[in-house]
């Protein structure tokens, strides 16, 4: 059964002069126990999508189902199934200790310490927060503050957890610790998690599937290994020799750019690299044909190594072109 189903979600913000289509016809579903990444540049609509699901921002249209419960019609029921760490906010009381925060936020979710205490302690150990247990949050570094916020959200033991940019502003070590803890907890508990980030490394590290959002629309929704192989198959580097006729090289460049508008040309001292992403692998023959008719000599053709970061940039760039 799907844990979370978002269908046709649309949200437009109207301010005095500005109208922002923050989320437009977004649909996706997340299976039980899945760890999904929402990836997209700043302003893509990740936070808005998450807040609509949590009942904090009212969508213009669309439907959100949390374990079969309509998130807006039966808010109380769906709220009981959700927890979240929100982006860029403290999320916790700085004047309370780590432990007091956890006890409070679990408490207002209906879980008393007497029932949740052992689990709270376990969370502290997984998140490496044990020594900070009785320290006021305001005295902690940003890494520990964020871990406290994550602990408060997880302590509610809801089947679905949202983490909006959980590693934003953390140093390398804190970010690493947090990701490791998330992986460990998820593999033990099998909760459904939705993690948003503009940093692909974070998503690649903890998620098994990525939904790429750009300008309020979903542009890709793939399992992460699929996404990598997909792009690996599509990225080619064609190296042509500079020794030939300069006019021929120009002609080849112009034609390649015309036929494959996204392609990238790098001039090196000895060679010219033509980097191109192809929707269909067979198109490589077209490119070779262009080179041949222009009269340039191809030295090598290679498939490019791809990581998620490149794939992501590629998708976003393509989307930007499509929008003009």
């Amino acid at each position: 059964m799907a844990s979370l189903v978002v269908s046709d979600l649309t949200k437009t913000f109207r301010e005095k002069k500005r109208v922002v289509e923050a989320v437009k016809n977004v649909s996706f579903s997340v299976g039980e126990g899945e760890m999904v990444g929402l990836l997209g540049p700043n302003g893509a609509g990740k936070t808005t999508t998450i807040k609509c699901t949590l009942g904090l921002v009212k969508p213009d249209s669309g439907r959100i189902e949390v374990e079969g419960v309509d998130a807006w019609r039966e808010r109380r029921k769906s709220a009981a199934k959700l927890a979240a760490v929100l982006e860029g906010a403290r999320n916790t009381y700085w004047r309370l200790t780590v432990w007091e925060n956890i006890v409070y936020f679990a408490g207002i979710h209906g879980i008393p310490v007497s029932r949740g205490g052992d689990y709270f302690k376990y969370l502290l150990s997984v998140l490496k927060l044990e020594e900070q247990k009785d320290v006021e949050v305001r005295k902690l570094s940003s890494g520990y503050k964020q871990k406290t916020a994550v602990a408060c959200a997880l302590a509610k033991r809801t089947p679905i957890v949202f983490l909006d940019e959980p590693t934003l502003g953390l140093d390398v070590e804190a970010s690493y610790d947090l990701r490791e803890a998330l992986r460990k907890l998820q593999s033990e508990e099998g909760r459904t998690m939705v993690i948003s980030s503009h940093d692909m490394k974070v998503i690649q590290d903890v998620c098994s599937r990525v939904i790429i959002i750009s300008r309020g629309r979903i542009v890709t929704d793939e399992k992460i290994p699929d996404l990598l192989t997909l792009f690996a198959a599509r990225r080619y580097k064609v190296v042509i020799s500079q020794n030939g006729d300069d006019g021929a090289i120009r002609r080849a460049e112009t034609e390649a750019l015309e036929r494959f508008p996204g392609c990238e040309i790098r001039r090196n001292p000895q060679t010219v690299d033509v980097l191109v992403s192809l929707a269909d692998g067979r198109q490589i023959y077209e490119l070779v044909e262009i080179m041949r008719t222009s009269g340039v000599a191809i030295e090598t053709i290679t498939q490019e190594e791809v990581d998620l970061e490149k794939a992501f940039l590629e998708v976003v760039r393509r989307e930007a072109r499509a929008c003009g």
Binding site: L56, R76, A79, L86, A89, N91, T92, C152
Partner: peptide, 18 residues
């Protein structure tokens, strides 16, 4: 401002009762 409002809002009993 601190985001604890939204956090309490997520409680199933709702912010009003809190």
């Amino acid at each position: 401002q601190t985001g604890t409002f939204e956090q309490q809002y997520l409680s199933p009993v709702g912010y009003r009762w809190i």
